[in-house]
Nucleic acid binder design. Sequence first.
DNA 1: GATTGTGAAAGCGTTCACAGCC
DNA 2: GGCTGTGAACGCTTTCACAATC
Lengths: 220, 220
Amino acid sequence: MARLPVYLRILSDQLEQGVTTISSEELAELGGVNAAKVRKDLSYLGSYGTRGVGYDVDFLVYQIRRELGLTHDWPVVIVGAGNLGQALAGYNGFGDRGFPVGGIVDIDTAKIGSVIGGVRVRHLDEVAQVVQQRNISIGVIATPGHAAQEAAEALVAAGVTSILNFAPSVISVPHGIHVGKVDLAVELQILAYHEQRRAATASTPSLRAVPGDRRRGASA
Amino acid sequence: MARLPVYLRILSDQLEQGVTTISSEELAELGGVNAAKVRKDLSYLGSYGTRGVGYDVDFLVYQIRRELGLTHDWPVVIVGAGNLGQALAGYNGFGDRGFPVGGIVDIDTAKIGSVIGGVRVRHLDEVAQVVQQRNISIGVIATPGHAAQEAAEALVAAGVTSILNFAPSVISVPHGIHVGKVDLAVELQILAYHEQRRAATASTPSLRAVPGDRRRGASA
DNA sequence: GATTGTGAAAGCGTTCACAGCC
DNA sequence: GGCTGTGAACGCTTTCACAATC
């Protein structure tokens, strides 16, 4: 379920703030979703709530981590030491959340040997070595679009079985390889779409229906 | 519809390769989806296909751009000139696809004045000025998590109506502001989940039903 | 003959509503 | 009284299948 990581982050936050118990309604509020949905999602993990009380935050965090396979670190290898690759390697959000950068590779000899975020950049040809040495199963593609397919093939050949693709082009991989895609332009295009619709409806006086937003407190 | 940007990218690629006509089946193949879905999606834009022939790629690109509001550029302002902000600002994928970086702001005086991707970094306090000068309606948050809320508030106060949040924390914004979120860790967690399931099923020769604890005697 | 456009059917995720439990 | 867990209703999205059209 794609919402478990969201719950996990919220619950981790709550845990830090000293919250020990949480109801489905509170969690739903924090996550911006429906309480019934939260209960359905969590019941999928097992019956870990207590009726009349709620869920034990600490236990729930453990269970979600277990379900997501986050009981141990998943080192990743980054292909591409350009702007994006450097940002990802230096981004604490990766290592802090269980995905330490186990290697960075590139084909630009000018970049090879430099150190980013404590990791030395090596040549793409050595990616198989890196993957096997550090027992890596997740690769991150941070290359220009035209190099993405080559990067994907090198990763698969090296033994990686999951790929997160930041390049703005579609890669094709053998069956059985999991691919996640983050296309920055697509995200912006969706926002642009909403902006454009906002402009269109704002200039259309016929649509007078006011959304009946019956929330109690205004957003704080 | 969230798939339009995907079609747009494929069609743009095809256009560059000299393809002038495409059938729903070909487009579906390239996009990895069902042909009927493609037709339904495109029929939503209007009846722009020709039976027995297919769709005119050039015309379709124009229509999708129109629907998405991509007939003009949408300059963006980036909050945070750290690793991620620099990567985004230097990333051609933004400007090339209609989202030029109209400004970068930060609170670190050491960074202010430096030039990234041709744009000078200014102070967060000047964000309203930047937004109004360049007529910006989309802001990008590339700060550490703890600064994301402050960034969001500054953007909203400056007049931005859409926000793309790369920080690993949830921001709350007034009603009517559109927020897109890219959480790098969430993407990786989803891949980890699949990896973990792969390992689990690989080590389970046959899926034997595990007896659950049925409370009460209603076992049938 | 090939391909679109679209009603109808099927599938899936969400929400409701309430019994069961603390 | 409060809250979970879940069958059932609902609504939305996807897929099918075929008439309409080129």
